[in-house]
């Protein structure tokens, strides 16, 4: 498997919000390539008629009834927030563009 392209590494890093140095980008191009190579081995297996598994436990329809439960105290909710204003979480300005 050839190296993964620089664009793919940058895209995946952006999706994960990772800041990569130039060295890291180059290293990851190689490493991701090897990982994909390994995945290709799995791709080669014939899975015709085999349903995709998202859970190993054969279980469906776990529900709760529409009943109120306990909510946290507001002070607890914001207890770990880096910044709080009037019981709101305060975050850097969000650009909605």
């Amino acid at each position: 498997m050839p190296d993964v392209s620089r664009e793919v590494v940058e895209h995946v890093a952006m999706l994960a919000r990772l800041a990569l140095t130039e060295d890291e980008i180059q290293r990851l191009q190689k490493e991701l390539g090897r990982i994909l190579e390994h995945a290709d081995k799995l791709q080669a297996i014939d899975v015709e008629g085999v349903e995709a598994t998202s859970h190993v436990i054969p279980m469906t329809n776990v529900f709760r009834e529409d009943e109120l439960g306990e909510s946290l105290d507001v002070d607890e909710v914001v207890a770990n927030a880096p910044d709080v204003a009037d019981k709101f979480f305060r975050v850097p300005r969000i650009v909605e563009d």
Partner: peptide, 14 residues
């Protein structure tokens, strides 16, 4: 919900 403040930060509540 987000509230955008003129001061340059945003408030979030869940």
């Amino acid at each position: 919900k987000n509230l955008h403040l003129a001061s340059g930060s945003s408030l979030v509540e869940y």
